[in-house]
Amino acid sequence: MGMQSQSFVRVRNLSIDIPVTNGILHAVRDVSFEIPKGKTLCVVGESGSGKSMLALGLIGLLPHRATCVSTELSIGGVEMRGLSGAELSQLRGRRIAMIFQEPMTSLNPCYTIGDQMTEMAVRHMKMRLSEARDCARQWLEKVGIPASSERLRQYPHQLSGGLRQRVMIAMMLMCEPELIIADEPTTALDVTIQAQVLHVLASLQRELGLTMLFITHDLGVVSRIADQIAVMYAGSFVELGTAQAVLDTPTHPYTQGLLACIPGFTSKQEKGALGTIPGAVPSLVGNISGCAFFNRCPEAVPACAEGEGPIARRVGQQWVRCLMPSLSDANVETPV
């Protein structure tokens, strides 16, 4: 329990449903996790696994028709459930920041970088405009953008994708938040730029002691920054544990499959055989009977297709949601 009290983010049984034309889309299904203060949790999954919805759900930016239920959702000791819109908007940008995937479209084309940065500080830090400009300039330099005074007068379309994402990081960190949620922040960038932006983000995170929820489908990125890893499939976490445990001893067949897709990543992998996972993510509309990974799983047994699907069990260092016929019951314990 001592460990839990230090957790900055605590989420229990979070589910997100979105009504769509042909039913209800269960984007996130019964997800629980904690992030200790100053640590990074990486959520990994294919596109369509519900990871972006999870991020939006945490800061209350889901589409209006979506419903988000959980038994606990606290960030920095504040229970987020039941907060009014105004209370939420006081937290957003101030204590919780979010960085999005699309740097090209995530900044308002009609306002200068300066306008968009200063309005944050004016709103949350109650700064005067001149103070806010100084602050914005300092932050631009912290993320490695020289000639900051000039940049403040420019419009987003005058900047490259990498620069825009740095501006985004600077803007979101300006009010010194405690938690940063990054939704695939480097996916849309060139590979070299990706590395630079990731470096900026990771070093600032260490320097400021930020807690981070990092969403990606790129396991290469995960291995560089994660303290903990959650593997998401069809709206649920199928495996959750420390970075080392998940990367060294992947237990869920899906995690194993993902790692096998990366050249030279795991020791288990036979030399020269680069794996793929056959099949596609199942539709998230309606209920899934049995395990969602059943139709693609190399180790599936008939029992996997039945019932509500497997519950999360502790296997060694990590939580795994799998019936796992290959594992003996001795080292399996069920959650409290």
Partner: peptide, 9 residues
């Protein structure tokens, strides 16, 4: 979405 995430009213 960015503007909402910035916590603007």
């Amino acid at each position: 979405r960015t503007a909402w995430a910035k916590g603007l009213p």
